[in-house]
């Protein structure tokens, strides 16, 4: 397993090579990338902060759980920290499995669990301000926070 929290750019080729296996019939790669807008607001860049040591520990637990649950052969989970520009990769997941079904299901499950459990936070920076995004990015929450910020 390859588990890493790093301020360096994430290397997809490295992750794919890491999960290669002669028994694998499928390799699934997911990239979480920085989008230039959120909830109608123009995003200039993001800043990610992690509780590094614990984040790696929790990522490893989730990866081990995914491996058992979906019978994955190889698993790489990398999260970037620091300032990220639009289009850069913040989260990289690569997994390999015997067949495609478990690689799609396992990948989907992994992303969801990582977003729920790993102690990482992102700050959105706009042209005219910034805000820590804390918790699920539901429309209701962000509108409420934007409203408070404007008061």
């Amino acid at each position: 397993m390859l588990i890493r929290v790093t301020s360096e750019p994430l290397d997809t080729a490295e992750a794919v090579a890491h999960v290669a296996s002669p028994e694998a019939g499928a390799v699934n790669v997911f990239l979480g990338v920085v989008r230039d807008n959120n909830l109608g607001r123009r995003v200039d860049h993001l800043v990610y902060e992690a509780y590094d040591a614990m984040a790696e520990k929790v990522m490893r637990e989730i990866a081990e759980e995914a491996r058992e649950r979906f019978g994955l052969l190889g698993c790489a989970v990398l999260h970037r920290t620091g300032r990220l520009e639009i289009g850069e990769t913040s989260l990289l997941i690569a997994i390999s499995s015997g067949h495609r079904a478990e690689s799609f299901e396992g990948g989907h499950w992994l992303v969801n669990e990582i977003k729920k459990r790993v102690p990482v936070w992102k700050k959105e920076v706009w042209e005219d301000g910034e805000e820590w995004i804390e918790g699920p990015e539901s429309l209701g929450k962000s509108q409420a926070t934007a409203g408070q910020a404007g008061q």
């Binding site: 979480g32 990610y48 992690a50 509780y51 984040a55 999260h79 913040s90 989260l91 992303v111 990582i114 977003k115 729920k116 459990r117 790993v118 102690p119 990482v120 936070w121 992102k122 820590w132 995004i133 804390e134 918790g135 699920p136 990015e137």
Partner: peptide
């Protein structure tokens, strides 16, 4: 102290 997380 862990505020609601927002990684990914």
């Amino acid at each position: 102290l862990i505020p609601p997380v927002s990684g990914g």
